[in-house]
Amino acid sequence: MSLSPVDLRARAEAASGHLPGLILSAERLASMVAPGAHGLRRAGPGEDFWQYRPASEGDTARSIDWRRSARSDVQFVRDREAQTAQAAGIWLSRDAGMDFTGGPDRPTKAERGRLLALALGMLMLRGGEKVALLGQPPRAGRLQAERLAEGLVTRADDTDPAAALRPQMRVVVISDFLSDPAWVQTLLARAAGLGSMGVLLQILDPDEATFPYAGAVEFRAPGGGPRHDSRDAEGLRNAYLQRLADRRDWLSAQARQAGWQFGGHVTNAPASEVLGWLWQALGQGAR
Score class of each variant (00 low, 15 high):
Asp249Leu: 14
Arg126Met: 06
Gly141Lys: 00
Ala55Gly: 04
Gly21Arg: 03
Val171Trp: 01
Ala37Thr: 13
Gly44Phe: 02
Pro270Val: 05
Thr154Ile: 08
Thr60Met: 06
Asn238Thr: 14
Asp59Pro: 08
Arg287Ile: 09
Ile203Thr: 13
Phe49Pro: 00
Arg139Phe: 10
Glu47His: 14
Trp66Gly: 08
Gly58Ala: 10
Ile64His: 04
Pro104His: 10
Phe219His: 04
Phe262Gly: 02
Ala149Thr: 03
Gly264Pro: 01
Asp229Pro: 04
Val172Pro: 03
Leu187Pro: 01
Gly21Met: 04
Trp277Ile: 05
Ile203Met: 12
Ala110Gln: 12
Leu278Trp: 10
Ala286Ser: 14
Gln257Gly: 15
Asp99Ser: 13
Met98Arg: 09
Asn268Asp: 15
Lys109Tyr: 10
Asp249Met: 12
Phe76Val: 10
Asp59Lys: 09
Leu118His: 09
Leu241Glu: 02
Ala117Lys: 02
Leu165Arg: 01
Pro137Val: 14
Arg11Asp: 12
Pro222Ala: 04
Glu218Asp: 13
Asp59Met: 08
Asp79Gln: 11
Arg248Cys: 09
Asp105Ile: 06
Pro45Trp: 12
Arg142Pro: 05
Ser272Gly: 09
Asp65Thr: 07
Glu150Ala: 13
Gly259Asn: 04
Leu251Ala: 05
Pro138Ile: 05
Gln83Val: 07
Ala258Thr: 08
Leu187Gly: 03
Ala191His: 09
Pro35Leu: 00
Ala96His: 03
Ala214Gly: 14
Leu92Val: 10
Ser175Ile: 04
Gln254Leu: 07
Arg78His: 13
Leu29Gln: 00
Ala281Arg: 10
Arg155Val: 09
Met124Ala: 12
Gly235Tyr: 10
Arg94His: 10
Asp65Phe: 06
Asp79Phe: 02
Ala145Met: 02
Ala233Trp: 09
Gly121Met: 03
Phe177Gln: 01
Gly264Thr: 11
Ala209Gln: 14
Arg53Trp: 05
Phe49His: 01
Arg9Lys: 11
Ala192Gly: 12
Gln83Lys: 00
Ser4Lys: 04
Pro222Ser: 03
